[in-house]
Every structure is written in structure tokens, then in C-alpha cells.
Amino acid sequence: MSKRVTNDRSDYSDPTDGSDFGEVKKKTIKVGSDYQAKMPDRLSKYGDDLPYLNVDKLLWYPHNTTDAVIDDYLCDFHQIFHGTNKHVRDYENALFLLLQCGFNTKEALRRFVLNDQRAIMKPWSEEEFKNFENGIRKFNKNFRLIQQSRVPTRKVGELVHFYYFWKKTERHDIVFANKKRLEKKKYAFQPGITFYENEENSILNQKTNKVLNHLINSDIKWLRRKAT
């Protein structure tokens, strides 16, 4: 069925004709008060009533401080922070501090040295590291279970953050260089349709009706995982 439609696409000529994809029931937009947004009655102005109560926190805005001054400042910051002077990027903390100090770079640096921000970032201990890897082995990427049973010293969010670094490290490669990873490599360079048509047609065909109801059913990786 999916095959047939694929063939049809090339000589599909009249987009206004109603016969296309006749076998799949056409989905339509629903009309009624259960579906549409209630429109604001009229144009209005923000008076003293704010549209919401919680506050958006300003972290930075482009000030008339020159780029050169900011670069110098970030360089100093970087040196204190890393002890090196290689690639300097926009450091959010540094810029926020600069904003708080009214764009006075000297004051910002002074305050930075005063309460060194490095203390805030708790580095991962070897034990946490090992427990994390054990957790991944046991529970795969169920970070909640890993957090609960292996690394209770970290929040789930921290595990996720850490995971995205860890997965690109040699350490990950050594421990987890398995078939799965090789497969992944293989199709990373065959984007889009080539992949669908040549390798996975059968899986996709079986699931074709489900595709309209669930976006995730168009994910080959997901389907493959479910099949095994």
C-alpha cells in the first residue's frame, strides 16, 4: 500500500482532485468551541494589569560597551576561570555579572574573584561516574531509575546534561562500542528517503496506518527498538 502511493507520487498531477490517498480516511480540522481558541474580544492595551505575574529575568542586553571592552573582560574572566587563554566565548555568568555591575568591567571582575563561581559547579566524582555507567548498562537511558538507584547525589536533569557529554567521550566508546553504535554510524550518512526505501520498507509498510495517528511511528529507530 505504501509502495503504491510512493509510485503514484511521481505522476501525481492534479492536486485539487479528490481521489488521492483514498484508502486512508482523510483527517480534518475539527470545528466547534472544543477546538478553536477563544479570541480576545477587542484590541486592548496593557494598563497597570500585567498579562502575567511571574517575572522574566533579564540576563543581558546589548549595551554601548564596545566589543573590544567585552572581549578583554571575557578574556580576563576566562583566564581566572580556566587558567588558559585559548578560545573565548560569551560566558553567560560573566556577562550577567557585568550587567549587574552596570557594565563596569573592573567591578565585575573584582566581584567574580571575590566569590569564585567555580565552587557552584560540583565536579563529578569517579564513584558517581562509575555508578552512572553501571546505571546506563542496567537501565539504559531511564535516567529516573538511574538517579534513584545509582546516583542519588545528582538530580535527574543533571544526569541528562552529563549524558550528552559522556556519550561523546572515549570512555563511552570503550565501554559501549557495540553493534548498536556501528549500526547508528552506518545510517547517519544516508539521510532521508534512501534509507527508508532501501532498508526499512517492510517495517514502515506494516506501520503505515499508524503513522497518521502517532508521529513517533515514523521513526525507524523507534520501530526497530519496539520490534526487538
Binding site: 502575567y52 511571574n54 522574566d56 529575568k57 533579564l58 543581558w60 546589548p62 560569551d90 556577562l95
Partner: peptide, 13 residues
């Protein structure tokens, strides 16, 4: 980053 006004947005209620 430095060229923009940056906000950490509020949490919508």
C-alpha cells in the same frame, strides 16, 4: 549572545 537582549522566561501559569 552578547548582541541580544537575553531573558530567562517566566514559567507560564
Amino acid at each position: 549572545y552578547r548582541k541580544m537582549e537575553i531573558y530567562r522566561p517566566h514559567k507560564a501559569t
